[in-house]
């Protein structure tokens, strides 16, 4: 039987990789039954979402092109 503490540890230390099916099943059951753990898991998921949706905005295309050209000029001096 997993406690909320166990669930919180696993949720907070998880990566995207695949894992152990049994504990995954027990986790899912716990999350189904426990509102607090669901909230916690959702909050942590929101952290990743916020990061991906761009707290650090993508560089604009022009800026990337300039950087790319600079790297190629420096990295392949005999070509350019």
């Amino acid at each position: 039987m997993l406690t909320c503490r166990d669930v919180a540890r696993r949720v907070a230390s998880a990566t995207q990789g695949g894992g152990e099916p049994m504990s995954g099943m027990m986790l899912r059951v716990h999350l189904l039954l426990c509102r607090d753990c669901r909230r916690y898991a959702r909050e942590l998921r929101a952290l990743g979402d916020a990061l991906r949706r761009g707290h650090a905005a993508d560089a604009d295309a022009e800026q990337l092109r300039i950087l790319e050209q600079r790297i190629i000029d420096l990295g392949f001096p005999h070509i350019s």
């Binding site: 695949g18 995954g24 942590l44 998921r45």
Partner: peptide, 21 residues
């Protein structure tokens, strides 16, 4: 100690399953 020993048990898929290797 439980936290220090916390092992990675990647059983929650935050955004889809990726083979763990």
């Amino acid at each position: 100690t439980g936290v220090v020993e916390a092992r990675i048990v990647p059983s929650i898929n935050f955004h889809g399953v990726t083979p763990d290797r």
